[in-house]
Structure formats: C-alpha cells, structure tokens
Computed example of a mutant assay.
Amino acid sequence: MKNEKQNMGRRAFLKLAGSAFGISALSYYLGLTRRAAPAPVDTLPDYADQGSGFPVFRGPYLQKNARLAAFLFNADLERLTVLCDQALNVSESFPYKYVPITPTLMLVYADMHVSSLDERDAQVGLIPETEVSFWVLTVAMQRTDSGYIPHHLAWFLPHLLVDEGNAIATGREVFGFNKQAAQFQKPERIEKPEFTADVFGFKQFGPEVVAQKERLLELRASSSPDSNQTKSDWEAAKNKITDELLKNIRYDMGGGLIEFAARFINDHIPLVFLKQFRDAQDTHKACYQKIVEAALTVEKYDEGGIMPNPYMLTIFPLASHPFAQRMGLKPGEQKSTHGAWIKVDFVLGSGVEVG
C-alpha cells in the first residue's frame, strides 16, 4: 500500500510538471532517471607519489577562509554554445551534451587557503591561493533513443587564472580545470573587490615574438563603493544570484527549461570539466579524454553582502588569451548586472567520470 501511494504521488507530480523538461526534471529529482555511476577504481594502479602528495594533493580539497566576490555580465549565447561544444561536447560517446541555458556569465574572484582532506596530505599544511574564474551555467542534455532530454545542471569553468603553481598542477591533473598562471593586484577588502590580472602571454602571434607580462583583466567599481553595504545571510545571497540568472533563461529549448532550472539551481550543482592529456607520440591526439563532474559544497558561511553599485570589467585583447571573443563578452569595458561578496569555507569533492 505504501509503495502504491508513493507511485501515485510520483505520477501526480509528473502530470503536474508537464512537458519533456518538467518530466525529466522531476524524474531526476525522484530518482527515476538513470544517473551516471562512478567508474570502478579498484582495478587502477596506485598513483606513484613517493610519499606526500605534494604538489598534487589527494582529494577532497578544503578551501578555507575563502573571500569571494561574484559578478554577473551579459554575454553572447551563441559564443557560449560554441565554447561548450569545443571544450566539452567533443565526443559522441559522452552521455551528455552540455548546453548553456542563459547568456549570463559569472566572474568570480577568490582569495583562500587550500588544503587536502585526505588523512595523509591534510598534515602538510595550507597553501594560499588567489583565483579569478569565469562560470557558465549549463544543462546536461542526456542522449536517448528519442533525442535529448535535460538531466541536470552543471557549472562549466572555461577559464581560471591562479597565482600558485601547485594549484595549476592539481587542478589540471586531477579534475581537468583549465587553470593558467597569473599575477594579481589584490583588493584589501573583499567588500571592495577591485583587482587586476597580468599574464605571461602574447598581444600578437609571430615566429619571432617573445612572450612577456601583459595586462589581461581589470575590475573597478563604477562609483565610490557604499560603505554602508547591506549584509545578507547565505540563502539571501544565493537566492539573489539565482533570481538574476533565471531572468535570462533561454526560450528556444522549450518553455519547461525555466521550471527545470528553477527546481535545481539552488541544489548542489556540480562543476564539469573535460579532463584530457596529449598523447606523447602523436600530440594531435589525446591519450586520455573524459568528462568529469565534481560537487562544490559550502561547509561554513561567515558573512556576505550585495554590491549596491555595478562594477566595470575590462578585458584587454591578447592573442594568447582571447577571453572576450571566446566567451561572447564585449571587447573593452562592460558593466556588471549584479554583484555579491561572501566569506565561506567550502569543499571540492571527489570527481566522477560521466563520459
């Protein structure tokens, strides 16, 4: 009787949801849709780390005393789609196709201390790290015999700039983060997160051109920051960003996409990566290529607030770092549509191969 009532309840929810998007959203939430299972690891050889995992620590990873600022910017949806196709949807064998669901791009600045939660590497210590990253909210469309249906949401981080070499090694080798080296002029307070990012790169390519330090990014307040910023709790800060993202959900994939995104956008949305390594014999080939997802979980929230005024982002044109072109941002200066800052501890969990 109990199972019969549960099944009747599930059918009622599915009927209320309507449309392919609503059905797949609820079926995923209720455990009816096949989820990608972790690949077996008991047959893999041990990683030869010669004792301590340093510099490529064993996971999971704790980001402690993190000071983060996040800003939303308008971007070109077509460019974001091409970016996802080039960086994630590279094989027909993958079970999901990742599609951006909004022409909104999130820029995140983070200062934190990173350590391993593995019982061996946790004794090594904390590594200071500053990071600037771009985030694209995607829907993972599952391949079925009748076409694609939405399965879950995932954050894709196409570009990450970091000032610490161990973070680059760990991020690339373990997950497939596209981390690149940078130097930052950092803000004194996260409540006023103005910063610059310089990289070792090229303004123009050429066989005789020598790479040098170049300015890539600047983020500045559009006006004098308000010293009386309103602080908010975690739910309020998260809901504000969620509301801004949902305003621009695309309509060309069916009206149910908004309902689908609304159901899952506040859940634990995983990060998605393409983890790959060039083959040593034929460097046009990949000796390893898999889609990896990993959960990011807030462990402790200290405080946060909403930016009362927009911030201005300038991306300088570099042939080696064509960020604006790839992500559909305007060249030169552009104004944020929303901004927030938070102080938290969070954990990047173990990755799962999903394709």
Rank of each mutant, 00 (worst) to 15 (best):
I342Y: 04
N3L: 15
G125A: 01
F57T: 12
G255W: 15
L318C: 08
Y288R: 03
G125I: 00
S350V: 00
H338N: 08
A197G: 06
P128G: 05
D46Y: 13
Q185N: 15
S222K: 14
M327A: 14
A340Y: 08
V124H: 10
K5C: 11
E293P: 01
E131P: 03
I306V: 06
E299W: 04
E208H: 12
R34G: 13
V352L: 09
P310T: 03
D163K: 09
F134G: 03
R189S: 13
F156D: 01
F134V: 07
K343F: 01
D282Y: 04
K192R: 10
H338W: 10
L160E: 08
F73D: 01
Y47Q: 10
G9V: 09
L32D: 14
A12V: 12
T170M: 09
F71C: 05
F200G: 05
T196F: 11
P310R: 05
T33H: 06
S222I: 10
A197H: 07
H159S: 11
A25H: 03
V41W: 07
F71E: 05
I190C: 05
E353N: 06
G125V: 00
T230H: 13
I101H: 03
L83N: 05
V292G: 01
P225W: 11
M307H: 06
F177V: 10
G53V: 10
V82W: 02
E119H: 09
A169W: 02
A122T: 11
S133M: 09
Y29L: 13
K231G: 12
Q86N: 05
A221I: 00
P193Y: 04
L83K: 07
P207Y: 10
F94I: 00
L219C: 05
S27E: 07
N239G: 15
A319K: 14
V174C: 10
L313R: 12
Q180I: 10
E129R: 05
Y251H: 14
Y148K: 02
L329E: 02
T144A: 09
I342K: 03
K240E: 15
R58I: 14
S52N: 14
T230S: 15
L161G: 00
Q6C: 15
N7V: 15
S91R: 14
D252L: 08
K2Q: 13
L348A: 01
E259Q: 10
G339T: 04
P207E: 11
Y96Q: 03
I306A: 01
A69F: 08
E293K: 03
G176K: 06
P331L: 01
Q180S: 14
Y61W: 12
F13C: 09
L72K: 13
A25C: 07
T283W: 08
Q281H: 09
S133N: 04
Y98G: 00
V199M: 13
F73R: 00
F71N: 04
E191T: 12
S350N: 03
Y251W: 12
S320H: 05
V114T: 12
R34K: 15
L72W: 09
Q325M: 00
T138R: 02
L348G: 01
A261W: 08
S24W: 02
T81S: 13
